[in-house]
């Protein structure tokens, strides 16, 4: 009888975990596809103060972004979210601007507003999510965030300096001093992270952005001749139970 009950206790657990992971992966894949299809202007009404986060049944973005996510600024962007993000990222920074001169390219806002909507089923099911853009050259795994000398422990201040930026949910030090799916404060035993390639073509040599000093990050510099080398960003989404 002990064998029978032991069998019953373990039977199907592995299959159950596989099916849950498959669902999460399929969901995140659907989210990633939506980045390329959904037009940014349709997200103009998706805001943290939109009033559809009922009775604490979903993750409250106001705690992360503040009172207003500024989704309304997407109203005139009649292109896909992916196009807006690429325009924002082409200078090497996800900061809602193209270059340093302040030309508007609200890729960061578009991603925030999109994920606020498409992650609702997971939020209402009691999950947290995190979205980040990994830069093509500077991603450092967690083990690199260690102190110097004999200290071998995780160092938040090292992580803050080293970890690739910018963050989709970055608000300085108010709520998440360290960001990322590698954050050790996340319950990593049940975290699922999915990375997808996000290739951006840098400006051509004749582009006005190439002439301005400090316009582009080092790795996003224009090429003088021949075809440009694409910037191989990664979009990483992680989901974990709250």
């Amino acid at each position: 009888m002990a064998i029978v009950f032991t069998f019953l206790n373990t039977y199907g657990v592995a299959q159950d975990n596989v099916i849950r992971s498959a669902h999460t992966l399929n969901y995140v894949q659907s989210v990633m596809k939506s980045i390329y299809f959904i037009d940014a202007n349709t997200l103009a009404q998706a805001d943290s103060n939109a009033g559809d986060c009922n009775k604490g049944d979903c993750q409250d973005e106001r705690g992360v972004y503040g009172g207003d996510m500024n989704c309304s600024q997407l109203e005139n962007w009649r292109v896909s979210v992916g196009d807006v993000v690429k325009k924002d990222l082409v200078d090497g920074r996800l900061d809602d601007k193209f270059g340093t001169q302040g030309a508007e390219a609200p890729g960061k806002t578009a991603l925030r507003c999109l994920f606020r909507e498409v992650m609702k089923p997971f939020r209402q099911a009691g999950y947290h999510y995190f979205v980040e853009v990994l830069e093509p050259t500077s991603y450092s795994p967690l083990q690199n965030f260690k102190g110097a000398g004999t200290e071998n422990a995780y160092k938040p201040e090292v992580a803050q300096r080293t970890y690739p930026a910018p963050w989709i949910t970055d608000t300085g030090t108010n709520y998440y001093a360290i960001h990322g799916c590698d954050d050790p404060r996340i319950n990593a035993t049940s975290l699922i992270a999915v990375s997808t390639p996000f290739r951006v073509q840098p400006p051509g040599k004749d582009d006005a952005a190439c002439g301005a000093e400090g316009m582009l990050e080092d790795y996003a510099e224009c090429h003088e001749s021949g075809p440009n080398t694409p910037l191989d960003y990664q979009l990483r989404v992680c989901v974990w139970p709250a």
């Binding site: 349709t42 997200l43 103009a44 009404q45 998706a46 939109a50 559809d52 009922n54 049944d57 909507e117 498409v118 609702k120 089923p121 209402q124």
Partner: peptide, 8 residues
């Protein structure tokens, strides 16, 4: 849904 997803 178009503008906002309403699941509630």
């Amino acid at each position: 849904h178009c503008n906002k997803i309403d699941l509630f």
